[in-house]
Design a protein around this nucleic acid. Sequence first.
DNA 1: TCTTTTTGTTAGGCATGCCTAACATATTTT
DNA 2: AAAATATGTTAGGCATGCCTAACAAAAAGA
Lengths: 177, 177
Amino acid sequence: MEFQFEQYWKEYGENELSHSETHYLLTIYSLLRKDDLLRASTVAKELGISRNAVHLQLKKLSEKKLVKIKENLISLPKHSINIVEKVANKRQTMIVLLSEVLGVPMHIATTDSCKIEHLLSDDTGEALLKFVQFLRSDRKVVLQFLKEFQKYYLQCDPEIGCGLCENIHSMEKVNEN
Amino acid sequence: MEFQFEQYWKEYGENELSHSETHYLLTIYSLLRKDDLLRASTVAKELGISRNAVHLQLKKLSEKKLVKIKENLISLPKHSINIVEKVANKRQTMIVLLSEVLGVPMHIATTDSCKIEHLLSDDTGEALLKFVQFLRSDRKVVLQFLKEFQKYYLQCDPEIGCGLCENIHSMEKVNEN
DNA sequence: TCTTTTTGTTAGGCATGCCTAACATATTTT
DNA sequence: AAAATATGTTAGGCATGCCTAACAAAAAGA
């Protein structure tokens, strides 16, 4: 196996949103749907973070125009709502792909999706969404494909060479530890 | 859209490897294949990071038993090689899924995969690998499925309701900005 | 009204992981 | 051997993002 991706690794830190910021926005969005009079302390409770930390983060988010704060009440500008909805779509799409199509246990699918949602590009998000949308349709080819995959998935023959077998075998070997 | 995933978000920081550590290990693994006499300064050059930072990180990785250092020469214990190979498989699988199957441009597929590789669980990694392996096989159902997906992907009708359409439309709307 | 409780705010600390500057120790080169 | 270069090491700084402690201001209850 060869790696020639070292030039990409630093882009990790150059995302529109950090993991922390993402969850502030998602939480604020969610809480605003229940009650539009939202204060910092409510966000703190919901995130399980101290009021002080939330206060400081909200101040920064406010400077970045990602949240609006007026008389201690929080709201989201349109721009942020767009961001939140895109991230939420990426998460939801990944959860469906992993749990429904690939059969990954729900808790794991959710945790994994939650970790990567804000890191996926919009291109990837859109492509994944169309793919999942297609996989969920009741086209004959899709149903046959999924049926065949289930069969394959449940009884994969390690003796069949297929170009990726070395990888799957290394995965299995490692998991025995 | 409802969010009930707030309880998961803190798990983000509780990974086996940080993004930084992951790339140290991947880089060391890669460099050791070219020359087994590997020094910290070589790693620094490859990662584009100062020698000092690399030195400090290697000391920590060494304390965690993720790398071995003997007379200024770096090597990887078996345990780390397993980790590296699993991460590399996750990355490779995601790149193939995104670029080959979903048609995401290579640079984007690579960047995205690079960002999430270390965050995907082994369960997800294995499931994705089997899925991609299946998608790459020349089964008739797979070929028909992919052909139909291409057709669908290139000319999706937004008027068709399918449960995920609201999402795809919100994505498209947002991207117009 | 006065007290208690809830919020908001500031300050100092800690861990991660990068940086530059400075110095120490090899290792080459001349 | 002496000078030049490469490599290792330590110290101090900075940004992110969390923490606790302490205090201020506002809201609620007696």
